[in-house]
Amino acid sequence: MTSVLKIRDLTLGFRKGRQTAQVLHGISMHVNAGEKVALVGESGSGKSVTAQLALGRLQQERGTLTSGEIEVVGHDLIRHPEAMAPERGHRVTMIFQDPTSALNPVFRIGEIFTEVLRSGGRKVTAAEARDRALKALAEVHIPDPARALDSYPFQLSGGMNQRVMIAMALANEPELLLADEPGTALDVTVQAQTLRLMDDLVTEKGTSVLFISHNLSVVREFADRVYVIYRGNIVEHGRTDQLFANPRHPYTRALLSAAPKLIGGGLPDLPEHSDAFRDPLIVHPGCGEPHEVSA
């Protein structure tokens, strides 16, 4: 099995003046071809920076210190982050939290779509772009694709914009889709619909997904495998069914008990930090990292 995304002992720190803030403390993870993997954790745990590193963006900023390995669609992004530039928008794409703000209000959907299809300097004629955009919008069940293409983003609802974002992210047939809390800005029913739609499409196209979220119920529906991240360390790794049936790390248990329930009481009292949350990584049977298995 080949991995589209492979991260090994990755550390990340931000240097400001003489001080360094360590954000990731040596995390390892992988996403195989056609697999849907979730990275779950609270705000500030290092989820989004991991996605930015996988896009090769963060490494190029000044004051960023990285070590370890990141390999995305065959590129070594620690040594050559610039190799990612032509792949972005093609072999690797991304979906964002707030679909409406991710679409520039001064352009029509059709114009933005053309830009996406032309990203990385690919030559696509206007007619061809429109044709592909129409097909892509029909795939995400947009009722009148031609009308949507001629609309401005603020004329469409949030749910429609999210479908447009999904269509755009999948239009160039990427190998890896990074979904950074998709649809968190939408209401739950719309979020559920669009996520199911995204699930169907990526399964059909065999796209690998790294799904970044703090929402456990969404992850449970969507992901094949789950990594739980706490303060820059992966604390638990397992298949979705294993992890939800038998959470073994104290932090995962705390996270699960914090999910709101339909029946019974308010939120439990959770310690914000607990020494137990720093327990070593727990890996469920059959899950390990590729290099550990072969070694």
Binding site: L55, R57, A85, P86, R88, G89, T93, M94, F96, Q97, D98, P99, T100, S101, A102, L103, N104, P105, E115, V116, S119, G120
Partner: peptide, 13 residues
């Protein structure tokens, strides 16, 4: 800070 700027950067603009 708007998402469309990040979106454009991410597709390699």
């Amino acid at each position: 800070r708007e998402g469309y700027v990040l979106a454009a950067e991410v597709i390699g603009a």
